[in-house]
């Protein structure tokens, strides 16, 4: 998805922003989209078939930075030279700002599925 229109859609989405660091979180969210984290992990860090869930409650900052910059797992490393720690920290702050999702019981569609498969 193109970054500009993608960002526009995101602006319309309910943002879960910590009030004390709104600007940083907004910047972190923009970076998260710009450098392509969303491609595998989804725009809310929810994860999917291509990448695991990142939020809420991402891994601790030190471990996060170490992993992103140096991983040899399936995820390609985002090295310091292309994603400086300062920017990565903003992304981490954005992930930290994402609140927990609603419970299954709070979503009627999913609550109904607890009892029987659908359709």
């Amino acid at each position: 998805m193109a970054l500009r229109s993608f960002a526009l859609v995101l602006c319309l989405a309910p943002l879960a922003v910590a009030t004390g660091a709104k600007a940083d979180v907004t910047q972190g969210r923009a970076l998260y989209i710009k450098v392509g984290c969303y491609q595998c992990h989804g725009t809310e860090g929810q994860g999917g078939v291509a990448g695991p869930r990142l939020a809420p409650a991402p891994m601790a900052w030190e471990a996060f930075a170490q992993y992103v910059h140096n991983t040899t797992d399936a995820m390609p490393p985002y090295r310091e030279s292309v994603l400086p720690g300062t920017e990565l920290k903003l992304i981490h702050d954005f992930l930290l700002s994402i609140p927990p999702p609603p419970n299954v019981d709070d979503i009627p569609l999913l609550r109904a599925l607890k009892k029987r498969p659908a359709p």
Binding site: P101, I107, L113, P119
Partner: peptide, 27 residues
């Protein structure tokens, strides 16, 4: 079901939400 709650209200629409809504009308 728990995994599907993540990004439930996101836009662009989550693929879990897409499947859940579609499954609901196919009941």
């Amino acid at each position: 079901l728990t995994d599907a709650t993540y990004a439930w209200d996101a836009s662009p629409i989550s693929t879990a939400r897409l499947a859940a809504e579609l499954g609901d009308v196919l009941k």
